[in-house]
């Protein structure tokens, strides 16, 4: 029996029942830009970076089930431009001051910006006022950098079996919350060894220890773009400087 395939532009992508476009494409060794997708977690579909075109409609590859012979358009000028604009929206929406951020060079948002050819955000920054939370002994929270991907929320629930993070507010007032009566991360059950403490793709959930051991310029995405490196963190066990 031949495995079923679908088409990513002109590439045949084999897939198994239950796979999404994203998981099948990744398994076939190709890269679709993404921030909120993680292979160990339930698909989410919020960052919208993995947009592809199917039957004339734009869909998120991470939440779209693979189907036999489906034609998935991926690499077009317009889609690449829209992916870049979505990254630019994220930059404009938060306070992303790369020069003063510890994860610069390891940041997946920044890496996608580099890879998608962003030199600046065409959208003027919104400069929101967001909270920081220094109550936890191991993890510092700087919401200026939050992109609401909910990797922390989902990994705490699904991998650590804990209810630590959530999203609250709405629209322009969306924010990351810590599940405790005080609302402080220090009053939750989060520990340094939890997966959720080491999954943030940006610098919002920042480990307090071990920073600046690798100098700027020698970090994860300084030499190689994210479409080659993949979405990683230096502390996820897959990085050797």
């Amino acid at each position: 029996m031949n495995e079923p395939v679908f088409w990513l532009d002109d590439k045949a992508i084999p897939f198994r029942d239950g796979q999404t476009v994203m998981t099948a494409v990744t398994a076939a060794g190709h890269y679709i830009p993404h921030l909120c997708h993680h292979p160990d977690l339930t698909p989410h579909g919020s960052c919208r970076l993995c947009i592809v075109q199917i039957d004339g409609r734009i869909r998120a590859a991470c939440t779209t089930p693979a189907q036999a012979n489906m034609k998935v358009t991926f690499d077009t000028t317009l889609l690449n431009q829209q992916r870049r604009q979505i990254v630019e929206l994220l930059f404009a929406e938060g306070n992303h001051l790369c020069p003063s951020c510890e994860v610069s060079g390891n940041c997946q948002l920044q890496a996608l910006a580099y890879d998608l050819g962003m030199t600046h955000s065409e959208f003027a920054p919104l400069y929101p006022q967001r909270e920081t939370d220094g109550s936890h002994p191991d993890i510092f929270v700087d919401q200026d950098r939050c992109i609401f991907c909910e990797l922390c929320t989902r990994s705490a629930r699904e991998l650590d079996q804990k209810n630590i993070f959530g999203i609250s507010g709405r629209g322009s007032h969306t924010y990351l919350l810590a599940h405790s009566d005080s609302g402080k991360l220090g009053d939750t059950a989060l520990t340094e060894t939890d997966r959720a403490a080491h999954i943030c793709p940006v610098g919002c959930l920042l480990p307090r220890n071990g920073n600046y051991q690798i100098p700027i310029g020698e970090r994860l995405y300084d030499a190689q773009p994210i479409h080659i490196r993949g979405n990683h963190r230096p502390d996820d066990g897959e990085f050797t400087p």
Partner: peptide, 18 residues
């Protein structure tokens, strides 16, 4: 739309503000 966006996805949440 800006006031009523739920804030889940990037284009609507950030795009409507801009």
């Amino acid at each position: 739309f800006k006031d009523e966006s739920c804030g889940f996805c990037t284009p609507c949440r950030a795009g409507c503000q801009i």
